[in-house]
Design a protein around this nucleic acid. Structure first.
Lengths: 114, 114
DNA sequence: ATAGGACTTGAAGAAGTTTTCAATTGGCTA
DNA sequence: TAGCCAATTGAAAACTTCTTCAAGTCCTAT
């Protein structure tokens, strides 16, 4: 019994839905990095970062390989970078759109609808 | 104090992270629809659908307009449709990738690492 | 005004996720 | 092999989201 595609999509987006996980993916967009560097770039405790990396690993979004005493993470597909770019575009538009909405709302306070 | 972009992104993805919400967005990809039609296309109680529509509305991803006694929903930007397509592509790749991974794992059971 | 249909809302409990801390593993060097 | 650093794990508590149900709004027709 295969998981329906809409469920898989929802799971995938839910996996992206955490600020630490987003920052990890953004940092990995320019190439693989050791945990040490992720830790330096994100304000979070080591054990919390590890938990979030585990979520990304379980979802198959990143891969980890041990190199000596450090562990290096990488995006498992560069389509993920595309997706993050698409999301940035949408968000930019939406924030701009909300700016307009806000302006309309402010106007509405003065020019009450008839 | 503006919300950091990585937080906005995480919130946005979290909003997409629910099977009913994904199906709503998929149904709206081809144009606006009244709630009645969404309800016909998704196996969920009316009140549950309403709750999920409210989540999408609050996030600014869909808009609703009342037309007589029915309410019509639409995507607020067609970039959302692009994003869903990007997600479908990634998911397809990932599922294929996981097929390979599975094959490797099965092999590993027989050819134990030395 | 009343009834009925379409949709939404509020609130409470159930279910799921996140954070945190202590304990643990794996590798390196003395 | 002892000690250390890097990273991970398990488990409990704190928090958030989801589902459900009863009650509510808004429109249309009688």
């Amino acid at each position: 019994m295969p998981i329906p595609l809409y469920q898989a999509k929802a799971d995938f987006f839910r996996t992206l839905g955490h600020p630490v996980r987003i920052r990890v993916l953004e940092l990995l967009q320019d190439g693989p990095l050791p945990v040490r560097d992720l830790l330096a770039g994100i304000e979070v405790e080591a054990s919390n970062l590890s938990q979030q990396l585990a979520v990304l690993r379980r979802a198959g979004i990143v891969t980890s390989t041990r190199e000596g005493s450090t562990v290096v993470y990488a995006l498992s597909s560069n389509d993920v970078a595309d997706l993050l770019r698409a999301a940035r575009r949408i968000l930019t538009d939406m924030i701009a759109g909300q700016g307009e909405l806000l302006a309309e709302l402010r106007e509405a306070e003065h020019t009450r609808p008839g």
